[in-house]
Nucleic acid binder design. Structure first.
Lengths: 202, 202, 202, 202
DNA sequence: TATGAATGAGGGTTCATTCAT
DNA sequence: GATGAATGAACCCTCATTCAT
C-alpha cells in the first residue's frame, strides 16, 4: 500500500527501475523517460529526487557496491576443514556471480562507459580477499608459490568467463545438459583443480 | 596516394574510424558526426555508403569477426615438445587478448547491447579450440580428467579478468612493477599452473 | 531574534533576496528556487506569500519606487549659497546614483522588459526636480535660457553614462587612478561646467 | 526570390530575426523556437548554422559592433568651420543613437546580462573619439580645460538619457510638441551649450 | 561520389505552479 | 505558516535521416 506522496518510496522505486534499465541498456541507452514511464511518474520528478541523470546513475552504482560488499562479507564467515573451506569459498563465489546478472551487466557497462568508480570499489573489495588467500597460504591450505592476486584471478576469472559464454557453448557443442547441470559440473571441476593445486604444495 | 572520388577508399576509412569509435564509446555513444568528423568527410556521406547507422555497425562487427578468425588461425601453427606447445599456446592467447583492446571492447559492447551475432561467431570459433585441446589430451599432454571446455575457460577466463582489472590491482596494492612486468609474472604463473595440472595427469 | 513562524518576517526576507537577484539577473534570469535557496526556505513558500512570480516582481518594483522617492526627498534639503547649492545638488545626485546599483539595474531590467510602471514613477518623481530647477533659474542661480528638462538631462545623463562605462574607459585608456579618484575628477569637472554655464547667464 | 536551400540566405534571415528578438526580449527571454518560428524554419536548423544559442548571440553582437564602427567612421568625415564641425558631430551622434533602438536595447541587455564583449568594443571605439576631441582641443575649437573623456561623457550621456526618458517626460509634463520637435529642441540646446563651453575657453 | 541544408524526434534539464501533508 | 512531492510545459541541444545540389 503506497501513499501517493511518499518521497522515500518514490526514490526507491526510481532506483529499482533505474537499476534494471541501466543493466539492460546501459547509461547512454537509458532515457529518463524510460525510467519515469516504468515507475508511472512524470518526467521531472526523477530530477527532483536525483538532481541529474548522472547522479541517479551514481546512486545506483553505490547501492550495488554496497550490496556487493554485503555479499562478500557474508560469504566469508564459516570455519570447518581446509578442504571444506575451499569448497565453500568457491561455491559462494560462483553463486554470488551467478545470481545477480544485473550487477554484472551494470559493472560491465560502467567499465565500458568509463565510469571507473565501481570498478575501483570492486577492485578494492576484491583486494580484501587477498588477506584471506594469504592466510590460507600461511596455514598451508593453499599453495604459496603463487601470488595471491594470481590465485584470485584464477578463481574469479573462469567464473566470469563461464557465466558469460556458457549458453553459447552449450548451443554450439550441442550439450544436452541443462544450464544448472553444466554449472554444477563446472564448479566441481574448478574445485577439483584448486584442491590439486593445494595438495601439490605439500 | 588517394583519388579524390574513390568510394572504396572512403568506405574503408569510415569503417576504420567507426571501429575505433564504437570500441571507445559503444553504439549508442557514437554519433555519425563523430565518425564523419574523424574521417574528414561530410555529414551525409556515411549514409550514402552504409544506408543506416545500424548497418554500419553490423559491417564493423563482421569485419572484426573475420579479423578474429584470421588471428586465431595464425596463432595455431607451431610444433615442438609438449611443454613448449603449452607455453606457446598460452603466450599466444595472452598476447592476442592483450593487443587488440579494440576487438574486446566492441565484443563487450555488442554483448551488452544484445547484438548476439558477434558472440555467436566467437563461440563458434572458440569451439574450434576444443578440438585442439582434445587432441592434446589424447596425446597425454593435457590432463584428460577435465572437460576441454573447462580447460579453455581456465585459460581464457583468467586472461580476460587479469587484463581488465590488472591496472586497478596495481593501484590498490601499490605494486611497483610496470604493467608489462606484471603481465609477464602473471603469464609465467599461468603457464606453471597448466604445466603442473598436466603433469599431475601422468 | 526571529520567531519560527513569522509570516511577515519571511515576506521581508523574500522581498530582499528577490530584489538582489532580480537586480543581478533580471526577471527571466531569476528562478524562484534561486530566491528560496537564498532565503533558506522551502520551494513552495514563496508562492504561498506572493501568489505568482510576476506578482513578487511587482512588489519588488513598488518597494524600490518608494525607496527612490524617499532618497530623493532626503537629498533635497540644504540651504547655503548658490554655488554651494549647485555643488551639493550635483554631489548628492552623483552619490545617489553611484551607491544604489541595485536600484539602477532593476530599473534598467524593468525598462527592457517592458515593465513601464517603474519608469513612469521615476519620470514622475524626476519631474518633481523640474520645480527645483525652475526655482533656481528664477533666483538667477541657474541659466534660464535652457529648459529645465534639458538641464536635468545634462546632469543626470552624464552621471549615468559615466557610472556605466567608467571602468571600461579606465581599462582601455590605462588610467592609473582608482575608480573613486576618477569619480572625484569627473564630479569636479561636472560641477565646474555647471558653474560656468550658470555664470554665463549673469 | 529565395532559393529553398540557400544556407547563406538562411543564416542572414536567422541573424536578422535573432537581432530583433534579442533586442525585444534579451538573451534569456528569447528562445530558439521564437527565432525559428519567425524565420519559418525548423528548430534544429538554427543550431546547424550557429552551433549554439550563445554563439548566435555573439554573432549578432559582432554584427552590431561592426555596424557601430561603420557608422562612427562615417560620422567622422567632413571638414568645414569649427562651429560647423561641432554642430555636425553632435547632430550625427544624436541621429546615430536615435535611429537604431535595436542597437541600444541589445547593448543594454548585454550590459545587464553580463555579456561584456559588446561594452568593451563600444568603449574601445568610443575611445577612438578621444583622439578626435583632443585634436579639436589642440586647435582651440574645444575647451581644453576639460578631459576628453569628460567631454565625451557630456555629449553622449545626455543623448542616451534623453532618448530613453523623453517620451515619459513628454507625457508627464504634458508637452504638446511631437517627439521629433522635442528632439530638435534638445539638440539645439545641446549644441548651444557645447558652443558656449568652447568659446569660454578662448 | 560528395556536400551540406533541412527536418523532426527525442533527451536532459529548468522551472512556475499545484497540492497533499 | 511551512514543507517538499508532483506535474507539465518549455528550453537548448543532439542526432539519424532525407534530399536538393
Amino acid at each position: 500500500m503506497r501513499k501517493p506522496r511518499d518521497g522515500e518510496d518514490t526514490r526507491q522505486r526510481v532506483l529499482s527501475a533505474a537499476q534494471e534499465l541501466f543493466a539492460a541498456k546501459g547509461f547512454a541507452g537509458t532515457s529518463l523517460m524510460d525510467i519515469s514511464h516504468r515507475c508511472g511518474i512524470s518526467d521531472g520528478l526523477i530530477l527532483h529526487h536525483f538532481q541529474s541523470k548522472k547522479n541517479l546513475y551514481r546512486q545506483v552504482l553505490e547501492n550495488l557496491a554496497e550490496q556487493y560488499t554485503h555479499n562478500l562479507v557474508q560469504a566469508k564467515e564459516s570455519g570447518a576443514s581446509p578442504q571444506e573451506m575451499i569448497q565453500q569459498t568457491l561455491s559462494a563465489s560462483f553463486n554470488f556471480w551467478k545470481q545477480d546478472t544485473t550487477y554484472q551487466r551494470i559493472s560491465l557497462w560502467a567499465y565500458l562507459e568509463g565510469q571507473t568508480e565501481l570498478a575501483e570499489k570492486e577492485a578494492y573489495l576484491t583486494a580484501g580477499l587477498f588477506q584471506e588467500v594469504r592466510r590460507l597460504q600461511e596455514q598451508g591450505i593453499m599453495d604459496d608459490r603463487y601470488a595471491p592476486v594470481f590465485l584470485l584471478t584464477l578463481i574469479i576469472g573462469p567464473i566470469h568467463f563461464w557465466l558469460r559464454y556458457r549458453d553459447q557453448f552449450k548451443a554450439i557443442l550441442h550439450l544436452p545438459d541443462t544450464a544448472d547441470e553444466l554449472d554444477h559440473l563446472f564448479l566441481k571441476q574448478l574445485i577439483q583443480l584448486m584442491m590439486e593445486v593445494s595438495h601439490k604444495a605439500s
